[in-house]
Design a protein around this nucleic acid. Sequence first.
DNA 1: GTTCTAGAAC
DNA 2: GTTCTAGAAC
Length: 230
Amino acid sequence: MDHGKGSPQGPVIYSAVHTDKDMTGIKEKTWEPWAEALRKMAMHPEQHIDTLLQVTQEAVVLHDKFPKGRKHLLVVSRQEGLDCVKDLNRSHIQLLKNLQALGEEWVQNLLNEDQSLVFRLGYHSEPSMRQLHLHVISQDFDSPSLKNKKHWNSFTTSFFRDSKATIEELETTGRVQLYGDEHSIQNLELRCHRCQSTQGNIARLKQHIRMCKAPFPSDLVHKGYLYTWK
DNA sequence: GTTCTAGAAC
DNA sequence: GTTCTAGAAC
């Protein structure tokens, strides 16, 4: 008795045809699907009412899905085609001032709830997700979602561009200088944002920052980059 | 961006 | 042995 033809069990061939080039052969930045989440919310806020804290003409406000501090909000610009600080010029100064003002309102709300918090407002030099977004993040960095060097250094090195400094830089030079990329900040040491001591790994760093009571760097205080309860 | 995990580092 | 890092994900 014959066995019928079994179904072919050959190896599955995937044709992973991905190209970074358009028909002119010029390389374009390609955004992965996961990087579109913020843009979708900014462009169609009515479809995300449940996750948005606030919707204005210019921005949407939401909780960061993976907060790196006790409080971590995003103020996302709704301007089409504006993805990162590299795209900014003088025409965006008023927008940035409005995003900052919105962020500051939320800082005030959050400080009213917990007067022990300290906040910093700023942008990542090279964001992972599309659509310009301002981070509003408490400086305890007390969060299970803070897990690796990239997380830490993206908020505590010059890779983090303070909102006020970004606006001032646009006003004086018309551009925003970037400091490092997502790859380079992984090779930086882990330094406490308060006492500046270096820690061997993320586990030790997190242990350390739970205890460290050193004052914040005075230049951050004097420049008004830190927001505290008054 | 996160999750998963192999293998390096301890 | 456990902890930690870093690269792939179809």
